[in-house]
Amino acid sequence: MAFRQTPSQTVGPYFAYGLTPQQYGYDFASIATPVVADETVSGQRIRIVGRVFDGAGAPVNDAMIEIWQADGQGRYAAPGGASNAAFRGFGRCGTGTDPQNRYFFDTVKPGAVGDGQAPHVAVTVFMRGLLTHAYTRIYFSDEAEANAGDPVLASVPAERRDTLIAKREEGDSGIVYRFDIHMQGERETVFFDV
């Protein structure tokens, strides 16, 4: 008997009470939330925020974003990996609870993993109308030197690299990195065949 991959299907419009119930106010515990690192986790505290745009430039109000990242010292919370027990490194946020359809993650800035890659966050995008999820990455605008040496960024056509760089802003509430995702169009975000 052959074991062929089970096909992907869209997450649909009604994922919230199953996958992001606390954020949307359902009476069901979430396994992952937009808060990736609470105050007990050491590292530089940042917020990542952005919107998802469709090919007509309209913000998507029913997308779900997942992130996976190393901690401030570049350690992943995976078996045999990190020792930072307070930090799981995984977050989920839907775009349907903010009036502007923003997603956000409160986390710490990831450190470099130590294999030549610049600090980055792995991003997975789900939504109604997306039959198979899309993978992208967040890099940081204040890591120009590290970004210049990153092998994954180097594999991306130079004129499209900018779609992977979150822009740092410093506001009253702390450090914010803005990262919009464009599904299509002139500024279509780079998506990877992971």
């Binding site: 007509a56 997306l130 065949d193």
Partner: peptide, 14 residues
Amino acid sequence: STVLRGPTRPLIPL
């Protein structure tokens, strides 16, 4: 819904 939401450019191998 796929028409305006599905990426149109080739995926970059990673």
